[in-house]
Design a protein around this nucleic acid. Structure first.
Length: 390
RNA sequence: GGAGGGGUGGGUGAGUGGUUAAAGCCACCAGACUGUAAAUCUGGCGUCCGGAAGGGCUUCGUAGGUUCGAAUCCUACCCCCUCCA
């Protein structure tokens, strides 16, 4: 029982399909909640599954540092360790190459890290990244890549991209030679920053290697949304039709809609859960800040359309209180709500694709949804200044 | 009755002659968050004018006083706390 992907239906560029893994199947387009340290923060696996999640993402770098790959293996692998019986995808640690700033050094052999926990030194190369993930036992594992910040020189982007390609080949070889090749899927990652020529080159080079799936990396790191959407469309079009396409680290509601529209099958993102812990609640109208005083005496649910546990049982005023009082139940309720919101959204997206009405669904989504993007904030500010007579 | 300690901005609490509109923390207000070093981070927070830079005014229990200059020193008063009787 290995890994496979079946494309069921397309509507424009949008695709509906199904992933099969040794730990069960997942319908696509799929959103994967992030459980970096083998837990979606604050939630039990049952609660996560209850929101509609089918796949969760864990981070091999963080688990390598703590509790250690051996430790997880002793518990029988990630699935039994964290009591998640569905599919798991692990990220290699490539994103930490980008996010850990001063604590890391990249060279041809891999990445040298200083542990953020105890300062100890570690080195992870493409082979180690693969073997760590193999031993963790995830269903889908990722190549080690070099994710790079937005705004750096094209030369730097190119050299990170070239290195990512060399590492991809090494990861593939390492995985191919192992006994896990059929039980674990290995995905390659396209890089190339915001440069269309580099993205094209990267998409072709990575597609040349017969990975089980293909990821678009290095986005949502500071470029504009339009750039992100454009690159996503460009790269998705260059990836094999019959393999899943995974846009890494992207997952605001509007991005899910827009990137499915550009041909993406899989997403992961910390946004819904992180932002939830800071009081932001997704609704069809956009994000709402539950910590605002205006919710203090609201008797109904924050999101009347939602069927999550919190929205069914608690008022917005109660949730407001939990956040003000810094009670952890508030974080949990907000987290499950945001996940539930996203999975209901993904469900509607898939249904629309299958029924060939994705475009009208997308239009309807935008009829209500108001993201708090820079342009909107700027507009609000100008309006406000005008109102003050400035 | 006796001995001692103390009253600082919404709260807590530094500060004992000038660099103090007054540290830090909390609360409050605003903003951010996209392959999680995040239940985190950033900014504001006496008042008035200003978009800002900046400037004006009023503050450290109350009232006086000393001094070029006081939250800081002196005097009186008011209030609070601890211990002894």
């Amino acid at each position: 029982m290995g890994f496979s992907f079946r494309l069921d239906h397309t509507d424009g560029l949008a695709r509906a399909g199904e992933l099969a893994t040794p730990h069960g199947n997942a319908r696509t387009p799929a959103f994967m909640p992030v459980g970096t340290q083998a837990t979606v923060k604050g939630l039990t696996p049952e609660e996560v599954a209850g929101t509609g999640a089918q796949v969760v993402l864990c981070n091999a770098y963080h688990l390598y540092l703590r509790p250690g790959v051996d430790a997880v293996a002793r518990f029988g692998g990630l699935h039994s360790f964290m009591h998640w019986n569905g599919p798991i995808l692990t990220d290699s640690g490539g994103f930490q190459v980008f996010s850990m700033g001063a604590l890391r050094k990249v060279d041809e052999d891999g990445v040298r890290f200083r542990s953020h926990i105890d300062g100890s030194e570690h080195r992870i190369g493409p082979r180690e990244a693969v073997s760590n993930q193999q031993r963790l036992g995830a269903d889908i594992i990722m190549c080690l890549d070099q994710c790079i910040a937005h705004g750096v020189s094209k030369d730097a982007v190119r050299s990170a991209m070239d290195r990512t390609h060399r590492w991809a080949a090494q990861c593939y070889q390492a995985h191919l030679r192992s006994a896990n090749f059929d039980s674990q899927a290995l995905f390659g990652i396209v890089q190339g920053g915001a440069f269309t020529d580099l993205r094209e080159e990267s998409a072709k080079r990575i597609s040349d290697i017969p990975f089980h799936g293909y990821a678009i990396g290095g986005l949502a790191v500071g470029e504009s949304k339009q750039q992100m959407y454009d690159i996503t469309r460009q790269v998705a079009a260059l990836l094999p039709q019959d393999k899943p396409r995974y846009l890494m680290g992207v997952g605001s509601p509007e991005d899910l809609v827009e990137c499915v529209a550009r041909g993406v099958d899989m997403f992961d993102c910390v946004l819904p859960t992180r932002v939830a812990r800071n009081g932001a609640i997704f609704t069809r109208h956009g994000r709402v800040d539950i910590t605002k005083r205006s919710f203090a005496d609201v008797d109904g649910p924050v999101d009347p359309e939602c069927d999550c546990y919190g929205c069914c049982n608690f008022s917005a005023g109660y949730l407001w209180h939990l956040f003000r009082a810094k009670e952890m139940l508030g974080l949990r309720l907000a987290s499950t709500h945001n996940l539930r919101y996203l999975f209901r959204l993904m469900g509607k997206i898939r249904e629309a694709i299958v029924e060939n009405r994705f475009e009208s669904f997308r239009r309807e989504f935008w009829e209500y949804y108001r993201p708090t993007d820079e342009a909107t904030r700027q507009q609000q500010k100008e309006k406000w200044l005008k109102a003050r007579g400035g």
